[in-house]
Amino acid sequence: MTQIEARTKIRAFLGKFIPEQDFADGDEIFALGLVNSLMAMQLVLFLEKDFAVKFANQDLTLKNFGSVDAMTDLLVRRGVIGAD
């Protein structure tokens, strides 16, 4: 999977919860209050399932899940998607 495909997938998932706003890939979704704290667990479940990855404890910081950019970077670091 390419980074662009991964971003599209993550945006589509978030789009179900942030329907009315435009959000940029760099926007901090938690800090901006676009989603609530429950979303953190939902994002872990989503990424682990759709990208067939199991995150280690050190991966699980809100920073790593705070934006489309951060999640894409995390997936690159975990070797799930290419670095392009």
Binding site: S37, A40, M41, V44, N57, Q58, L60, T61
Partner: peptide, 17 residues
């Protein structure tokens, strides 16, 4: 248990689930 400083967002949330 879980990342230090992230005990609520991850550990408590998922345990409460």
């Amino acid at each position: 248990i879980g990342p230090q400083g992230q005990g609520f967002g991850w550990v408590a949330s998922s345990a409460l689930d």
